[in-house]
Amino acid sequence: MAEKLAFDLVAPERLLASLEVDMVVAPGVEGDFGVLPLHAPLVSLLRPGVIRVYEGDEVTKRVFVAGGFAEVNGRGLSILAEEAEPVEEIDPEEARTRLRNAEEDLADAKEPEEAERIRLERAVAVARARLEAVEQPV
């Protein structure tokens, strides 16, 4: 497969990665999807999860994102992530604490307003996905 996929990972504050790769598997809200070169144009929401970058058959890079958007067009794949960090840089202990804190925050909030509840639940979901990301084998 001579053709490569141009993959950009961007956060609001900076461009995190701009690579030529063979395949990217991204966590869409309706299930993970793989993007190969010449993929049909697509816009998808992402759930908190792990982006896997493949070179040949090997996963060369795993990045955790807390959500965002993926766009595939004729130029390649761009992922606009809100919060992104390489999986190997996440400390499992810290991830566990963060999940516990988020769950406590949600449990402590008595009769929160709708917007507040959504925010807290989201924080829990992000923290859980982050912990799963670091615990699951490559």
Partner: peptide, 20 residues
Amino acid sequence: EELGAVYEFEPEESVILGEL
């Protein structure tokens, strides 16, 4: 570039737009 014409959306456009 006729890129915008045939996008697939996942989930629907309006949901994505609501987030975007």
